[in-house]
Simulated assay, not measured.
Amino acid sequence: MQLVDHDTFLKQLVTLFESSKDQGSIWITHKRLCYDKEDTTMKVEDGVEDPHAYPCLLRVSNGDKVKFSTKVDSTDLLKFHQVYGALLKSCMTSLRKRDKKREKQRAEEAAARKKKLSEPVVVNGSKRGNGRRKRQRQIKAALKQQETLGKIKAKEEAKAKAKLTSEEAL
């Protein structure tokens, strides 16, 4: 992997975007560099300034032969990100648009399922003779609905419990 300066990095990134416009992928990684043999956590005690200025490493690869990176100091980071952000906006015009029609259809189907679950299944029909099969299907549907509601309730409780534990960890 070759380490280049900021201008060269941005120029090579533009050419890489142009070469992969029709086909291919690009992997971009941002990483904070840390000093050897030090704790990599970003926690700083109250009232104590961090004596180190951590640079940022940006790597770009297309998965095959093209790999390059640049190191941005914390003092130049804001200026670099303005140029870098503008470049990404201008180069990422060929991304696929979201299929809003399909998303809307799925949302409507989910809402219909919720509505169907909220309405109780009415069990009617005779126990013997004509209508017995209809009654059995309705009983089976009512049991399935209760089971599904129980699963949904269990998922919600687990989600709430996980949220509480994550808040306690903070």
Rank of each mutant, 00 (worst) to 15 (best):
T70S: 11
K115R: 11
L88W: 02
K114N: 14
K116A: 15
D73A: 10
V123L: 02
L78W: 13
K71T: 15
L87V: 09
R113D: 15
V121M: 03
R98W: 02
S126Q: 06
G125D: 02
S94N: 11
K89G: 14
C91Q: 09
E109S: 15
K79L: 08
L117D: 10
P120N: 09
T75P: 02
L88F: 04
S118M: 09
E119H: 09
A112W: 08
D76H: 10
V123S: 00
R102K: 11
S94K: 14
F80S: 06
K127N: 11
R96N: 05
K114G: 05
K71M: 14
S74C: 07
R98I: 00
L78K: 11
R96W: 04
K101H: 03
F80D: 00
E119Y: 10
G85V: 01
N124T: 07
A111Y: 02
R106D: 15
A86L: 12
R98P: 02
V72L: 13
M92D: 00
V122E: 12
D76P: 05
M92C: 06
V72T: 12
T93F: 06
K104G: 12
A112F: 08
M92P: 00
N124C: 12
H81N: 14
D73V: 07
R96F: 02
H81Y: 14
K127Q: 04
T93W: 06
R106T: 15
E108W: 09
H81D: 13
K101V: 03
K104A: 14
R106C: 13
A112R: 12
T70I: 05
F80C: 05
D76T: 13
F80V: 03
A86R: 08
G125S: 01
Y84F: 15
L88K: 09
